[in-house]
């Protein structure tokens, strides 16, 4: 029999430190699969953020540099402008991209920087222990919204993909989820397209990934994967939000 599914070459052998059922792990896996399939291992540079995924550099077998909280888009801008031959992606959480780094993200997108943002939206601050994120749903309980998020006090879950789609320099924005076999395959397709947009120098690309955080949602892994379908996608609908390429699938 033939081996048809194995560990990607550009994923180091190090076991993930992420919790069981975590969406970061799935995302790392499909990204490294793509890096292999698109033959990008020797030219891709990743910019992971502070947070759970700060250790992404222990897993991706590519050049990586840590960024300060929220500054991924600015760091990627400097790097890509200084060395345009590289494929540069930022890997950012919701606090990173949608709270502290909103300005960097919007302006990098508006300049049409040829970079790709991988935006992990799990509606919660993971590493700091489950505080409210800008994307926390209304009435969702977190350690800093112990009675549930109240729009009168904390405002509304922010929709970065829709905001960035309005910005002229963005080329491709899609929201996906990593909570089922079909959705994982779609997520991989979306990231492939985002990388292709960068290779074709079409401008800023972002894939927002609805990602389970069983630990901070206080659910079992399976429950957390279901919760995305049952609750989260109602606030954050999946699909292509902007695509200037006119093509449905990535080349």
């Amino acid at each position: 029999m033939k081996k048809i599914y194995t560990r990607p070459k550009s994923l180091k052998r190090t076991p993930f430190h992420y919790c069981p059922g975590c969406g970061h792990s799935i995302t790392h896996k499909i990204m490294t699969e793509l890096i292999d399939e698109m033959n990008l291992q020797d030219k891709t540079i990743g910019i992971p953020p502070p947070g759970c995924s700060v250790f992404a550099y222990n897993y991706f077998d590519i050049d990586m540099a840590e960024s300060a909280h929220g500054r991924g888009a600015a760091v990627a801008t400097g790097l890509k402008r200084a060395y345009p031959e590289a494929i540069v992606f930022t890997y950012q959480g919701d606090g990173d991209l949608a709270a502290i780094g909103t300005a960097e993200t919007i302006h990098a997108s508006n300049r049409g920087e040829n970079i790709t943002a991988i935006f992990i939206n799990n509606a919660v601050y993971g590493m700091t222990g489950g505080q409210m994120a800008p994307t926390t749903l209304l009435s969702q309980k977190t350690t800093t919204t112990p009675y549930g998020r109240d729009d009168k006090i904390e405002g509304y879950p922010i929709k970065m993909s829709e905001i960035l789609a309005l910005v002229k320099g963005s080329a491709y924005i899609e929201r996906v989820a990593v909570n089922s076999p079909a959705n994982i395959i779609k997520a991989k397709k979306a990231i492939r397209k985002a990388f292709q947009v960068q290779i074709d120098c079409l401008g800023f690309s972002m894939v927002e990934i609805l990602s389970p955080c069983p630990t901070n949602w206080k659910m079992s892994p399976v429950e957390s994967w279901k919760w995305i379908d049952e609750v989260m996608v109602k606030e954050f609908p999946l699909g292509v939000i902007k695509d200037i390429t006119g093509k449905k699938d990535a080349g």
Partner: peptide
């Protein structure tokens, strides 16, 4: 867009 972004762009370019 800000001094914070500018210094982080410097960081990115210096990485390269």
């Amino acid at each position: 867009e800000s001094e914070i972004s500018a210094i982080n762009m410097v960081y990115g370019a210096s990485l390269a």
